[in-house]
Measured scan of single mutants.
Amino acid sequence: TETYKYDDKREAEKAAEEFRRRGITVTVEERNGTWVLESK
């Protein structure tokens, strides 16, 4: 599991889209005002 942090929800979702395009499952969730993207 890799974790990436973003200040902006849009950025996180854009990154998530890129991962999914490569066939990687990711989750995006907000933690304490930071958007956390996790690849499984």
Rank of each mutant, 00 (worst) to 15 (best):
T25P: 10
G33E: 03
E30R: 09
K40Y: 13
D7P: 10
T34Y: 15
K40T: 13
I24K: 07
S39G: 08
E38D: 06
G33D: 03
I24W: 12
E18S: 08
I24F: 15
Y4S: 05
Y6H: 02
T1S: 12
G23M: 02
G33F: 03
D8F: 05
D7A: 15
R21Y: 05
S39L: 15
N32Y: 05
R21F: 05
G23I: 00
K40N: 10
W35F: 07
D8G: 05
E38N: 10
E11W: 04
V36F: 13
F19R: 03
E30A: 07
V26I: 06
W35V: 01
Y4H: 10
F19N: 01
G23Q: 02
R20D: 03
T25Q: 13
D7I: 12
W35G: 00
E30H: 10
K5L: 13
L37S: 01
N32H: 06
W35Q: 01
R21M: 09
R21C: 08
R10L: 12
T25A: 13
D8V: 06
T34Q: 15
E2I: 15
Y4T: 07
T3F: 11
R20P: 00
T3E: 09
K5R: 13
G33L: 02
D7V: 12
R10Y: 12
Y6Q: 01
V36A: 03
R20K: 07
E11D: 10
D8L: 07
A16F: 04
Y6K: 01
A12V: 03
V28T: 03
S39K: 14
Y4W: 13
T34K: 15
T27C: 05
T34M: 15
Y6R: 01
T3S: 10
A12H: 00
E2S: 12
N32S: 06
G33H: 03
I24Q: 08
D8H: 07
T1D: 09
W35D: 01
E29I: 15
G23P: 00
E17F: 07
R22Q: 09
L37Y: 01
K5E: 11
E29K: 11
E38L: 15
V26K: 02
E13Y: 11
Y4C: 12
A12N: 00
G23W: 02
T25K: 11
K5G: 07
E13G: 02
D8I: 05
R10N: 11
R22A: 07
T1F: 14
A16Q: 06
A16K: 04
E18P: 02
W35K: 00
E38Q: 11
E2R: 13
E17V: 07
R10G: 11
T27V: 11
E29H: 12
E11N: 06
R31G: 03
E38Y: 13
G33A: 03
R31Y: 10
E2F: 15
E38C: 13
E18A: 11
G33I: 00
N32P: 01
V36M: 05
S39Q: 12
W35R: 01
K9S: 05
E29N: 08
E38G: 04
W35I: 02
E2Q: 14
E2A: 13
L37R: 00
V28P: 02
Y4F: 11
E2H: 14
L37N: 01
E13A: 05
K40W: 14
N32C: 10
T3G: 09
R22E: 04
F19H: 03
Y6M: 02
G23N: 03
E17N: 07
E29S: 12
G23H: 03
T27E: 06
E38H: 11
W35H: 01
E18N: 08
T27A: 07
Y4K: 08
R20G: 05
A12T: 01
A12W: 01
R20E: 04
K40A: 12
T27R: 09
E29T: 14
E18V: 07
R22V: 06
E38I: 15
T27P: 00
E13N: 05
E11I: 06
E29V: 15
N32E: 09
T27G: 03
A16Y: 04
E30P: 04
E2C: 15
A15F: 04
T1K: 11
E30L: 14
S39C: 15
T1N: 10
V36Q: 04
R20C: 08
G33N: 04
T34W: 15
E11T: 10
R21L: 09
V26P: 01
E18R: 09
T34A: 13
T25E: 13
R20N: 06
E30W: 15
T27F: 11
E17T: 06
R21K: 11
R22D: 03
E17R: 08
V28Q: 01
E2N: 13
T3R: 12
T3Y: 12
T27I: 11
A15N: 03
R21G: 05
G23T: 01
I24Y: 15
R10Q: 13
R20T: 05
R22S: 04
A15C: 09
R10H: 12
N32Q: 06
V28D: 00
S39V: 15
T27K: 08
R22G: 04
K40R: 10
S39I: 15
E13D: 10
E13I: 09
A12E: 00
R31I: 13
Y6A: 01
T1R: 10
V28R: 00
S39A: 15
T3I: 13
T25G: 06
T34L: 14
N32D: 12
T1A: 11
A15H: 07
R21P: 00
E17W: 07
S39H: 13
K14H: 08
R21N: 07
L37F: 03
K40P: 11
V28Y: 03
Y6I: 02
N32W: 05
G23K: 02
I24A: 08
K5N: 09
R22Y: 06
